[in-house]
Design a protein around this nucleic acid. Structure first.
Lengths: 241, 241
DNA sequence: CTAACATTTTTCCAACTGGTCAAAAATCTT
DNA sequence: AAGATTTTTGACCAGTTGGAAAAATGTTAG
């Protein structure tokens, strides 16, 4: 089965508001409203807004964030922001669909024809790097999950499930070939997700517990080393010698 | 070092509001406001409110929850609820401090004088059981973490850190004695937290991915089996025979 | 340059929310 | 049962928030 592409939300941006009086005739004529291409400014501003929204949403959650806050971070006025995204929800929707695509990329890259341990190790690394480099996205995602994934439950049930099913199959094959230990492939994937995202989502806790000394930048390297050991050998001590 | 007890927030309940005209004289006399004991109704109602608040907060986050919602779930009017907890924040504070205490109990139970594998295995089991039996508490906690733990950062930095330091020491001893593999004890604890809480916090995802067939009640048993294998042996296949 | 269109700002509003207050109702004490 | 106290309610309020309207200001193609 080919790795299914995630569907992304339609454009549907400023358009809504752009339907001014001027277009009234055309609209009334029930013509299929040709989707005029975005101007340079529109593209730029939308990106700025999305970046600001990511910052704010990931820190305070959807309901905890106000349009004013986002507008401030984006460096524009609230009505101005609403000109580009007529609804607060629309910003969130855009963010979420972009998110899912990039979020699943690491798993998609896991190749059935590679060496199992190399593939799994690389996957863990990539996931950990994402936790390190894109913690806001990780938190946004976690937030959505905590709420029961109201906005992306469809994609989770369809696209994500399909991808995981596919990769679980790959893992099962490896197990059949005796290349990795026989175990539950789904829970294996869950444990990789959990252990890596933990470093983004529970960052405060990780830092606080590690303390000043070890909570610095080195913590991701330590985590990588530890996880490698965990997934390779678990906690069984090496037979000495 | 004795396992330090977590400090719990003061009573400070309805009291505030209970300072009615009747008490005015006494208060004016600057007597140290003897903390009259709670009535039966007060205790009951507070419990009902806290239960309702847990339900609502864990599902929508602090800012995403309204007093009205909590009151509705608690089966009382908003002003009535406010009679018992004059501030929304107060409810949350109570919930959080209760939470931390119960949340750390499983780790505290890990005994230095037990068998390492038995102790670790039991710890994982307990944590997994908490994810299964108290998912709302888990989500409440995750929520707080995602926001940067604003309300409990002190306890995290002091009490939680102390506890983890202590147990990390225990783990290190076991490693020195060659009873478990030498690895980073802190990250080991993190990985136990992460993998177990995942089943509460990302429950929707877990269910969706496992699908109708395997997403049922059996998933916790499967998880327990998988995690046991992971932490014991990792993914290295058994030398056949 | 100017008309047509795109962008921004100013002013405003209705719904929601956390919280107050006084009075009514229920409960407890003696 | 009466009086004191606690609990509950209904009306109300001020601040916040998402969003609409329209006027003002840019921008750009002809």
């Amino acid at each position: 089965m080919a790795p299914r592409k995630l569907k992304v939300a339609e454009p549907s941006q400023a358009q809504a508001k752009r339907q001014h009086k001027a277009d009234a005739k055309a609209a009334a004529a029930s013509s299929p409203a040709k989707p005029r291409p975005l101007t340079r400014i529109q593209r730029e501003k939308q990106d700025i807004i999305l970046e600001a929204a990511l910052e704010v949403f990931s820190a305070h959650g959807f309901r905890g964030s106000t349009i004013d806050q986002i507008a401030e971070v984006a460096g524009m006025s609230k009505p101005n922001l609403l000109y580009y995204f007529p609804k607060k929800e629309e910003i969130h929707r855009r963010l979420m669909s972009e998110l899912l695509v990039t979020w699943l990329a690491p798993l998609q890259e896991m190749r059935a024809d590679g060496d199992p341990f190399v593939e799994i190790r690389s996957y863990i690394r990539r996931k950990l790097e994402m936790a390190r480099d894109f913690p806001r996205q990780s938190r946004l995602f976690a937030n959505e999950m905590l709420r029961g994934a109201p906005h992306i439950i469809d994609m989770i049930e369809v696209d994500l499930k399909a991808l995981v099913d596919e990769k679980a199959q790959v893992l099962l094959t490896w197990m059949d070939e005796g290349k990795i230990a026989r175990t539950d492939p789904y829970h294996l994937i869950f444990s990789i997700w959990a252990t890596t995202q933990h470093y983004a989502d529970f960052d405060v806790q990780v830092r606080a517990v590690l303390g000043k000394g070890r909570g610095g930048e080195g913590r991701f390297e330590d985590a990588a080393r530890y996880l490698e050991q965990l997934f390779l050998h678990g906690l069984t001590p090496k037979p000495k010698g």
